[in-house]
Amino acid sequence: MNLVGDILRGYTDMLLLAVLEERDSYGYQVNQLLQEKTDGAFSLTEATLYTSFKRLEKQDCIVSYWLETKNQKKRKYYSITSNGKKLLKEKKKEWEEAKALIEQVLQKNHQ
């Protein structure tokens, strides 16, 4: 069972926003960056990626646009908005709080 993957899956939106905060990107590239950052431990299927992007777009957290690359490939790029940045900040805070609580419990058990 991939526990890391299961835990991170609940935070898909936060992870996508975090990647997009660095630069505008398209689906496949976002997945590549996630895999790189997690040393290949975590990757998303097209379906999950698409659903998350749609959800974030509805919430005005990201916007999309089509771009043609040099080799004439058309790709749909996503860009984070101010709403998205705000949500990311909140999610990061939530994550930090959850992490702190879990560590607190674990440390007490250790003592």
Binding site: Y26, Y28, E46, Y50, K73, R75
Partner: peptide, 14 residues
């Protein structure tokens, strides 16, 4: 249509 185009572009890269 847009969904298919996006998924296909990602699949080709993959």
């Amino acid at each position: 249509k847009e969904k298919k185009a996006e998924v296909l572009a990602n699949l080709i890269d993959r």
